[in-house]
Design a protein around this nucleic acid. Structure first.
Lengths: 187, 187
DNA sequence: CAATTCATACCAACTGGATAGTATGCAATA
DNA sequence: TATTGCATACTATCCAGTTGGTATGAATTG
């Protein structure tokens, strides 16, 4: 029941927003009552925190698997971009909530989320630095800013990417990584 | 007074969110009363619409100026990316509201905003196609998806770019456009 | 084995506070 | 004196969270 509440909440929060979705809306969508909700969650914000943690923890876990692999930096970069885009199929609604509704968490809770978000980004930055050191990437790279660029392109896809559309997640990832690695300039 | 109300609303909406900011909060921040607000706006949503229109119309106008110039596609691409990032100084709060609070507009109003957002994107896509035709950009480019990548990297910057930080808007734009044009791969 | 206790999982009704929007009033100004 | 630019007071509604339950089944005990 707790999972059911969370799943339905994610759908409703995505469509209508956190503040715009009442507990009543959530429990009505399942056919239970508010008592049930407060049996599983102590507050609406705790539910939101669960959603945030579910999203970011999954991403970090997947990233760790990729980084622990014994592959080139280029390949790892592709894997991370691909993972972010393919994750839209799995967690697209949660992604929207994560970036849109973060302001509804109090400072304490934010202090648990923000470092995880930063960790994910800094891992990419480190990957770039490793690639610069081993000669895979250009030596004159500003890895800090470039990381924001790569993650921006990838993360932004939750705004437009349709997992059931004509382009697959893999195609998009390939196009993105080719742009990032080789550029769009004609030779 | 109308501009003052709008400006203060933008600041409050950015910090607390649209639904979380009451009309009372807005008028209190200026020291007037709700009567004043409803003298200038017929509803809270109309104010939000004004903010959305102000943001997107400004972007389209700036983009038009860039595209009408007689410069290369590469230069125009740089100008657009630079414009988007430097715009954070001017309209950063409105940008956050634009992408975060769009769901608070009704269908009629959304139907006026979404085409403008699409227009901006399609203009970039056309710029890429022009560049492909005239040989500035690679012929095998998927301009549709690459456009999403470029705009993603640029737009995402409102999440992290600090106009008063160490990197200037111009530096970020230069790093982004170099990544987009030349790629990060070592030769 | 039968009675009792107890935790689990839910339900229904209510409260207190907040909030968008309205109706009306009033002073300055043009 | 009519309009502009506000202020005041009010209404109707909504909603998070609380309180006090009930049904069920499993474990405990006499």
């Amino acid at each position: 029941m707790k999972d059911k509440l969370t799943e339905h909440s994610i759908n409703l929060f995505e469509k209508k927003g956190f503040k715009e979705t009442s507990i009543q809306d959530i429990v009505d969508s399942i056919g239970v009552t508010k008592g049930t909700f407060y049996y599983y969650f102590s507050s609406k914000e705790e539910l939101l925190m669960d959603i945030h943690l579910g999203y970011i923890n999954y991403l970090i876990e997947q990233q760790r698997k990729i980084l622990d692999d014994n592959r080139s930096c280029k390949e790892k970069l592709f894997d991370i971009v691909y993972m972010l885009i393919s994750n839209i199929k799995i967690q697209g609604s949660a992604a929207k909530i994560f970036f849109r509704e973060m302001k509804n968490l109090n400072e304490e809770r934010l202090a648990l989320i923000v470092p995880k978000r930063d960790e994910f980004r800094l891992n990419v930055e480190k990957l770039l630095n490793d690639g610069i050191e081993n000669g895979e990437f250009r030596a004159d790279l500003n890895s800090h800013i470039v990381t924001f660029g790569i993650l921006g392109a990838s993360n932004w896809s939750y705004h437009w990417f349709n997992p059931n559309g004509v382009s697959t997640d893999r195609e998009v990832a390939e196009i993105f990584v080719e742009m990032i690695l080789e550029g769009i300039q004609a030779n």
